[in-house]
């Protein structure tokens, strides 16, 4: 479903190649310069590898944790069609997590290690999933806004310099488009429904708008890794560029729904040909990133208990395979 803004929130990596690796490093930089893709066994600077491991694994974690707020509504979806669609969407999010863990593993890190970091609370994931899904309209708002923001973030990553990440992104973007459209369809149905349904849609927009706008991460002035990530062509646009683009395309969609975006300062600027928008509450952003959002604790608890409760299955499957192997060899 999502990444971004995250890449600038982890630990610092310093790109300081030693003399011995200087030649390799120059060759690497020139490949990046020529827009060549870097593949798993190719030489790459440690900092490039670490940046990718951090970004791809945070992205994978986000997909997995992102299953929780939506999974919350599977049993209460209003129709069988909505339920089937929501199940398919949540399965996709799980699949996206798998594509991304698979891409991260090509960098020489074990999946177990990454999962361990998430469960220990040491890894970050997108802070948007620390907000609760209180009504059915939230499922519409997530598809429309959260997946919409995610697509905007992810399309440029399809051209990322690291091959496996770029290829995973192509696959993900193709699937996300269904997510966003089904979300908008839910919003449209509610917006054209009864007064109570319209109010429900408006309430969801009120709660999800600002967290969605924050999904693009800190402003460029505060994003310490953006410059390096752009030089390495991991990132193609800055957080603020993507955020502006998101607002520009989403505001007219809200107009179509006849819903009001909860920003009194939002207005079209005919001079810049962009929407102007109000100040983002960065305190809230940092609070949620640091673990103090409405659902941070609940999300991690859910992942931990799923992991623990699945332990016997993982162990039994392994034991069964170990037992079958000599039999198969003997047959």
């Amino acid at each position: 479903m999502y990444t971004q803004g995250l890449d600038s929130l982890g630990k610092d990596c310093l790109p300081t190649p030693s003399a011995a690796t200087a030649a390799l490093s120059t060759h690497f930089e020139s490949r990046i310069e020529r827009d060549e893709k870097i593949e798993p066994k190719d030489w790459m600077p440690d900092a490039y590898r670490q940046t990718l491991v951090r970004q791809i694994s945070q992205h994978a974690h986000s997909e997995i944790v992102g299953m929780l707020p939506e999974g919350n509504w599977i049993s209460r979806a209003p129709t069988l069609r909505r339920k089937a669609v929501l199940i398919a969407k949540v399965q996709d999010e799980g699949g996206h997590g798998m594509y991304l863990y698979s891409a991260a593993e090509t960098l020489g890190v074990a999946r177990d290690e990454l999962v361990e970091q998430l469960l220990a609370g040491a890894a970050k994931y997108s802070s948007i999933f620390n907000y609760p899904t209180l009504t059915w309209a939230d499922i519409g708002a997530i598809g429309w806004l959260v997946d919409g923001a995610a697509i905007m973030n992810q399309i440029p990553i399809c051209r990322c310099s690291y091959g496996p990440y770029a290829r995973a992104m192509v696959r993900i973007c193709r699937e996300e488009s269904f997510h966003q459209r089904q979300g908008f369809e839910i919003m449209l149905t509610l917006a054209r429904g009864s007064a109570a349904q319209r109010a429900m849609a408006q309430d969801a927009l009120n709660r999800w708008w600002w967290p969605s706008v924050m999904m693009f991460g800190p402003s460029d002035a505060d994003s310490k890794h953006t410059a390096q990530s752009m030089r390495w062509k991991i990132k193609r646009f800055t957080n603020d560029e993507l955020r502006q683009h998101f607002i520009d395309v989403t505001a007219p969609q809200a107009d179509f729904l006849q819903l009001k975006i909860p920003d009194p300062e939002l207005c079209w600027d005919a001079k810049t040909l962009h929407y102007r928008f109000g100040e983002i509450d960065w305190n809230e952003f940092h609070r949620v990133v640091r673990g103090h959002g409405p659902c941070n604790r609940e999300r991690l608890e859910a992942r931990r208990s799923a992991h623990e409760e699945g332990r016997w299955v993982r162990e039994a499957a392994l034991a069964y395979a170990d037992k079958q192997r000599p039999r198969a060899a003997a047959a």
Binding site: A103, E105, R311, R314
Partner: peptide, 29 residues
């Protein structure tokens, strides 16, 4: 929290339709 030993990794190749070769798409445990 301890993890059980990781399941082995398999590379996955898919033939998208008959007439085309199998192509690497990713991996699974």
């Amino acid at each position: 929290m301890t993890t059980s030993p990781d399941w082995p990794l398999f590379e996955v190749f898919i033939r998208s339709r008959s007439g085309l070769e199998h192509k690497h798409v990713g991996s699974v445990h």
